[in-house]
Write a protein that binds this DNA or RNA. Structure first.
Lengths: 192, 192
DNA sequence: GTCTATATTTGGATAGAC
DNA sequence: GTCTATCCAAATATAGAC
């Protein structure tokens, strides 16, 4: 793997566990196994530049994951409930660290790191846009779809934090059932 | 105001903007206007002890706020939608900083600061317990109430982060409408 | 492009006079 | 209880040889 990828991957892994502020460049250097000078050669912008790249990579990975879950199955409400439940089972078995870190980083950098706030805003926006497209393709109205997907992302991020803090998958399952019930109230043009 | 209150209040305000890791003791000292020695006299446990006190205070304040919103009005779904909408209007006008910071801190400290993770877990638990009592008192089934309140907290925390990042109140309003729609699907013993 | 050495600032925490 | 001075480790970033 390329040096710059090793660096941004190490940054991503550390941010997932500790967030942005608590993650030190020296930790990144050690985890990536690269010398200090190489890091600043590849990322002249230092810590925040690396974090930006790491965030975009994680954002894209989760978009693919969630998109896949939402695309599966005939019934959207059922697919939603299953996606949340599967996330719950994952973190219960694999470990509480295995969580989407974008929301936590978002809260951390929103006021103090304008450049990173915009990166996260881009990630949220693209998640929503891609999700809306999937939902519209299932026959839902565009404005319903946007509201549903926005609420889905909010519920998912919030439930992740609660699950990790309470060491329980229940918040994720509960949020999934709630969002599925909400989705059931929306009209579907094509398939109903 | 007492010295220790000035300290924990300053810590709370700084954590709201920057999170836990990025907030320095020196910043707290300056913001509170107290000398270094006084801080460690009142809080021998240093930074994490102060953060614990600050978190508990913020947790209680938000419990009261949200509890008041949920207790108002005849119709629970309408009260939920209004509570989220009111939060949206607040942060749009007062400022994006004016947000519940508990969720962000939760993500930050979940793996790295076990003592603070437990403090946040206590806060989430008491929010849920108090919310469940309010909802049960309205005639909902206890298990429905617990699931609803858990999802409410998750959606609220997630929507706060999205709103602050996207600089828009819409995620909060959308999440509120979604949760209201979900609440409408639950049976009410007394009033329906 | 890689690597070592180091500059400089800031972190949290402590000591001890008053 | 209050306050000043200070310690020591860690932070990010840079300089310059190779």
């Amino acid at each position: 793997m390329q040096t710059d990828q090793r660096i941004s991957l190490a940054m991503a892994e550390l941010m997932r566990r500790q967030g942005y502020a608590a993650t030190g460049i020296k930790q990144v250097i050690e985890a990536a196994g690269v010398p200090n000078g190489s890091l600043y050669h590849h990322f002249p912008g230092g810590k925040s530049e690396i974090a930006g790249v790491a965030l975009r990579t994680m954002g894209a990975a989760y978009a693919e994951l969630v998109g896949g879950l939402l695309a599966d199955g005939d019934d959207l409400p059922a697919a939603i409930e299953q996606a949340f439940a599967s996330a719950a089972t994952d973190i219960e078995s694999i470990g509480w660290v295995n969580m989407c870190p974008v929301g936590t980083i978002a809260g951390e950098v929103a006021e103090a790191e304008p450049a990173l706030r915009e990166v996260v805003a881009d990630i949220f926006t693209s998640w929503i846009d891609e999700g809306v497209e999937l939902v519209v393709r299932r026959g839902y109205r565009a404005d319903d779809a946007r509201e549903l997907v926005t609420a889905l992302v909010a519920a998912l991020e919030g439930a992740f934090v609660m699950a990790r803090t309470l060491r329980s998958g229940e918040p994720l399952r509960g949020a999934g059932r709630a969002m599925a019930a909400y989705a059931s109230t929306l009209p579907v043009g094509v398939r109903r």
